[in-house]
Simulated scan of single mutants.
Amino acid sequence: MSTSLPLLLEAEQLAELLSDDSYSLLILDTSSAENHARLHIPGAVHIEPKALQAGTPPYPGKLPSAEQLHDIFSRVGLSPDKHVIAYDDEGGGWAGRLIWTLDVLGHTNYSYLNGGLATWVNEGHPVETTINTPAATDYQVTVNTTPIAEVNDIIPKLGSDDFGIWDARSAGEHNGSKVLARRGGHIPGAVNIDWLELMDRERNLRLVNLEQLQQRLNDLGLSKDKQIITHCQTHHRSGLSYLAMKILGYPNIKGYHGSWSEWGNREDTPIANN
């Protein structure tokens, strides 16, 4: 393998790679089960999106157990030599959650297919319906906590100049007019950019212009010199904001996997509504 693949991969690049044996690719599709069965990129292996979350109330978005992670990634055939291509059918939320999970596992050989299934299908690339079952591996799970934010990582940093929070929920969830937990509102100081604003609908759900996104983040105080925590309700939508910051080269980002389902359901967490 002469050169590494870019983190942000275009459909044309992946189309060429499908016939290139110099890369040990593992294409992981986090689309819905229905869409995966209907069509997918040739060779793609399905991961049920919800399998990337523990699913345990009242904080369903938390990281699955080490045993669950072992089972998921052994089943899909992950091994240290594989370069993962992550994609989904919704513009990057679940694919971003997958990439965050890979960071937690310490597996950093990955790329995101820009625009995912929408780009691939709408621009005429080949698809298949065959359900791919790769040879299982015995994937040894070691959890790297660096990409993971917990409540106790956030509260002491609130108001710090070197700290920022990206709330990827809708404006209504952020301002407390739409309540999806016992309490509504947002973490004090959190900046709201809805994950949907990261998708360019004129370009088949590719990420929006990255220079403009970086300028917007800078203007809102979410610059690269800060530690940034991203969250939504269950760290699904904020998978896309985490991924966008990875692509932009942010050195210190964490995904708050408890997200608002934890923060808004606890009684000891500060909340703002302005």
Rank of each mutant, 00 (worst) to 15 (best):
A66H: 07
E67C: 01
E67M: 08
E67F: 03
L69S: 01
H70F: 06
H70E: 13
H70K: 13
F73Y: 11
R75V: 08
R75E: 15
R75D: 15
R75L: 13
R75P: 01
V76K: 02
G77Y: 14
L78Q: 02
S79D: 13
P80M: 14
P80N: 11
K82T: 08
V84S: 11
V84M: 04
I85W: 09
A86K: 06
A86H: 05
A86T: 05
Y87Q: 05
D88L: 09
D88F: 10
D88K: 09
G93E: 00
G93R: 02
A95V: 00
A95G: 11
G96C: 06
L98T: 01
L98P: 02
W100S: 12
L102D: 09
D103K: 14
L105W: 02
L105G: 03
G106Y: 15
G106D: 12
G106F: 08
H107M: 09
H107Q: 15
N109T: 04
N109P: 04
S111P: 07
S111G: 10
S111M: 12
Y112V: 07
L113Y: 15
L113F: 15
G115S: 15
L117Y: 09
A118P: 03
A118K: 11
A118I: 02
W120L: 03
N122E: 13
E123R: 14
G124K: 13
G124A: 03
H125Q: 11
H125S: 06
V127M: 09
T129W: 04
T129P: 00
T129K: 13
T130N: 10
I131Q: 08
I131T: 15
I131E: 12
N132D: 03
N132P: 04
P134T: 07
P134D: 11
P134E: 15
A135M: 09
A135E: 12
A136W: 01
T137E: 04
T137S: 15
D138A: 10
Q140S: 14
Q140Y: 00
V141Y: 06
V141R: 05
V141L: 06
T142S: 15
T142M: 12
V143C: 05
V143L: 13
V143W: 07
V143I: 14
N144G: 03
T145Y: 10
T146H: 06
P147K: 01
P147M: 06
I148G: 09
I148N: 00
I148Y: 06
I148C: 06
I148F: 07
A149Q: 02
A149S: 14
E150V: 05
V151A: 11
V151C: 13
D153Q: 10
I154E: 02
I155Y: 01
I155W: 00
P156H: 14
G159L: 11
S160K: 06
S160N: 10
D161C: 00
D162P: 00
G164P: 08
D167G: 13
D167W: 14
A168G: 08
R169F: 07
G172H: 00
G172S: 13
G172W: 10
E173K: 10
H174P: 12
N175Q: 07
G176N: 02
G176A: 06
S177P: 00
S177F: 01
S177D: 14
S177T: 15
L180C: 01
L180E: 12
A181G: 13
R183F: 11
G184I: 04
G184T: 04
G184E: 10
G184M: 03
G185R: 03
G185V: 07
H186K: 07
I187G: 04
P188G: 05
